[in-house]
Computed example of a mutant assay.
Amino acid sequence: MIYLLIMKLIMINPKFSGLKAFSYLSSRAILALITSIVVSMFLYPKAIRILRSLKAGQPIRELGLEEQMLKKGTPTMGGIIIIFATLLSVILWMDLTNRHFITLLIVTVGFGYVGFLDDYLKITQKNTAGLSSKKKMLGLLIFGTAAISWHLWSSFHLSVPISYTLYPTSVNIPFLKNVIINLGIFYAPFAILVIVGTSNAVNLTDGLDGLAIGPVITCALTLMILSYVTGNIVVSKYLYYHTIPGSGEISVFLSALIGASIGFLWYNTFPAQIFMGDSGALALGGILGTVAVITGHEILLVLMGGIFVAEALSVIIQVASFKTRGKRVFRMAPVHHHYQKKGWPEQKITVRIWIISFILALLSILTLKLR
């Protein structure tokens, strides 16, 4: 909104040319970050008080973990503030005519809505069941399909020469120069799987104070850098990297998301004053998966989001092993509970996972040169 206003003022009167500094992508990304931090930091204390007065506490499953039971009653649905602060900042500083804004908006609002319904049912019914897994998956698939449909339709209606871009149904293979696979008609279900899978993986990771939000920030920061590169023809050609028209604007969106996540982390560090709930975890995971799809980093997401992959795989392995062999591989799944069962303090697990996530982010950025 502010970006479009600045551009209009410059066109109307040259006297406003000094405002052009605020129209640059880097300037708007920084301003979006600051805006979302301020908004979230301002809203969380009020939200915590209101949620406590409404007794909107997070129901806790009986896992045999004393630390987990101490969290009973902690306000949840903090993800709503993350979404609100992100979108408010985005509306102010992002170019709203950018086609990728619509794709990200569908996922952010849609996945956030599904998560909200799940959180609301848990709170009102005073149990951990919430929305049934089938209904939750159906909701995610509907909004994921809508987002990918818009993305592909808008991609195929571009007037940019295709030789400069990654073909809309193609997947880039990291660390290998010019190795691109065109999935054709199979791309849509693949892309939807990436988005919905990432959403659920982040949700599974959100089990300890500050655990999920740390890797979300490192992944968002990595994707922000990669989005800028793929959106800049000069930089991408210099690095012999693929180009995605308009993807540079996504860096403003991700910058706003990082700011809102930092604001949330302030109140989510141990001992947490508020949880993000499914309304936050599903939306954040969906955003990361969607950006990876838009920018052609679906495969690289496995590396940068290695923490989420490990958490999801631990659940799959545990269930498969118990059903086929009657034995458990881990003491408890997701894997962060395994280390709790081994006696690791919650803070140690969280910080070590943050460190691993940071290393994976650096390795992912290296793909810009190591090919």
Rank of each mutant, 00 (worst) to 15 (best):
G289L: 01
G110P: 04
S155A: 14
S26M: 13
G277T: 05
S199C: 08
S159M: 12
N232R: 06
Q68S: 13
L284R: 05
I50Q: 13
E66G: 15
Q273D: 13
L284N: 03
H336D: 08
W153N: 15
L239R: 01
V229L: 13
S132Q: 15
Y113P: 10
D209V: 03
Y44N: 03
T218W: 02
I349Y: 04
G248Q: 10
V179F: 15
I262Q: 08
F322C: 02
S251K: 03
F308P: 03
S159A: 13
S89P: 08
F84S: 05
V302I: 11
Y24P: 09
S247K: 04
V351Q: 09
S251T: 04
I60Q: 15
T295Y: 09
L303N: 10
V229C: 09
L366M: 13
W354T: 10
A21H: 12
L25W: 07
L117A: 04
D118G: 01
Y44G: 01
M41G: 06
S170E: 03
L176W: 12
I359Q: 12
L33W: 00
T74K: 02
L31W: 06
H242L: 09
K177P: 07
G139S: 12
W354C: 02
K20A: 15
Y164S: 11
G277K: 00
T97I: 14
I91S: 02
K177D: 11
H100Q: 09
R331H: 12
Y228Q: 10
A32M: 09
V252G: 03
A21M: 12
I213M: 06
L25Y: 08
T243K: 09
K342D: 08
G112C: 05
G305C: 06
V196D: 00
A281V: 01
D119W: 04
M137Q: 10
F111I: 09
T290H: 03
L226M: 06
S261K: 06
